[in-house]
Design a protein around this nucleic acid. Structure first.
Lengths: 256, 256
DNA sequence: CTTGACCTTGACGTAGGGTCAGGGTTGCAC
DNA sequence: GTGCAACCCTGACCCTACGTCAAGGTCAAG
């Protein structure tokens, strides 16, 4: 008669595994000797080797029992099923590998390439890193909600950058981050913003219909603006006084 | 400010996952409102999306933190490392698939093909299934201890089957399973066994040196014999009286 | 008698959360 | 004002397939 250690060693598994199989009922508990030790016969070794063979082939323990008692048809059906599961796992891991390979540090983490390109363009225009980071975080939020619209959105944004007035405004908005909260220069900024809005209005309304940002996303992006720009509340108030409401989604509230 | 549910939905993860990330320190706990609810800002959404991006690419959570703060070099080194791990997992699964595909119900579970062929030959010789099953279990034990010797061992066993006297003896040994324990016919069986031993002795001794079965394996196989054949103790005694000791490894104890 | 190798049960840990249970909060409709 | 659904909170147990102590009992050798 064998002890659990001998059994395990003959079958090529660990003692812990044998006890685990007992605890799940996969291998029946044998009789105990006078001191409480489990005592096994050679048949247990054979059973355990069968279990190990299946387990090492990737069969989940919960299915080993059914496979040990299966006839040829049941067995091959179960094997097919398990192989399907393994194939799916392999595919999933391959997909992981694909994604891992595309990951890189910095912007491209959580942003599609067209957004990365847009950020890179901002950098080339010598806009400060501070702004680029804010833009990046905002676009991460957008990309998470509407990934398929990102290419078109990025094209639109990129086109805006062809207007030197837009770029100048970006630059001055960054400057404004350091201004005291009631700074008089905000009025001039508001005027310039309104000018841009009115020039670009038709374009924007057209696009706004094509790509409706969900209300909650608009709110979220506004909150990013409010949280990062001390002048934001005052600027929004100035814009409202000029007939424009909102920021992420700007709307006319007074007719011209 | 966002609740945990809104945060989770913006980032595309479950509420439970967010709490899990809090518990492991991956995502810092935010401030609570007056009723104890967690309240998040948009920056938390961005952080969470970054975490999700890495996690979905197969990065273990324990490494996500280090990756979020890594520079380009550290990042790509870590990515290489993770990809190695993923590759290893894929290989392991492919190996599982290979083995699963070779598994079949019946004998081939836990036995190499040459052993399966040997068992099949026993069946073709019309030896009873009872014997074939006993042989199968015995060879499972041997195969588990010395897999690389199996082809040669099976060749040797197969050659023995070319002697009609051996086959006849097998048949009669199976018959003997039903005999009463002190049956007189055992004497005749013992005589025939001894005859075979003496004819084959040189062959056997030669092979015994080439393929030394470990003592413990011999003991285990003897125990299979003893457990399954009621006549075994008596037969072994008769053999000893004729100058031969053992069963799995038979040895002459008296000179001729 | 000691020592070391074995055995016993029980419990906790792994990765990444899922799924209750039991109770408090909020917001909207009636 | 109140009822109800939909949130939120913590705590706890569940999953795989065991690994790894902890605290003790047993056995064989020297």
């Amino acid at each position: 008669m064998l002890t659990i250690g001998q059994l395990a060693s003959y079958a090529g598994v660990t003692v812990r595994a044998v006890r685990h199989y007992h605890s799940t009922g996969l291998l029946p508990e044998p009789a105990r000797d006078h001191s409480g030790y489990r005592r096994y016969d050679a048949a247990a070794v054979v059973d355990l080797i069968r279990i190990r063979t299946l387990a090492e082939a990737g069969v989940p323990l919960s299915r080993v029992h059914e496979l040990l008692g299966a006839d040829v048809d049941e067995f091959s059906a179960a094997v097919d099923d398990i192989d399907r599961r393994l194939r799916a796992e392999v595919r999933e891991l391959q997909e992981h590998r694909r994604r891992i390979a595309q990951l890189a540090a910095g912007d491209s983490l959580a942003l599609p390439p067209e957004a990365v390109a847009y950020l890179e363009r901002l950098r080339e225009l010598d806009l400060p890193e501070e702004l680029v980071n804010l833009e990046r975080d905002a676009w991460i939020l957008v990309a998470a909600q509407m990934p398929e619209q990102m290419p078109t959105l990025m094209t639109l944004k990129s086109e805006q950058l062809n207007d030197p007035a837009v770029i100048a405004l970006y630059r001055d908005l960054v400057e404004a981050l350091d201004w005291p909260s009631g700074d008089r220069r905000l009025d001039a900024l508001a005027d310039r913003l309104v000018t841009l809005f009115e020039v670009g209005q038709d374009d924007w309304e057209e696009h706004a219909e094509d790509f409706p940002l969900p209300d909650e996303l608009v709110e979220l992006l506004d909150s990013v603006f409010l949280a990062n720009a001390p002048f934001a509340p005052r600027l929004l108030a100035l814009l409202e006084a000029r007939g424009w409401k909102g920021w992420t989604r700007i709307e006319r509230i007074k007719p011209l």
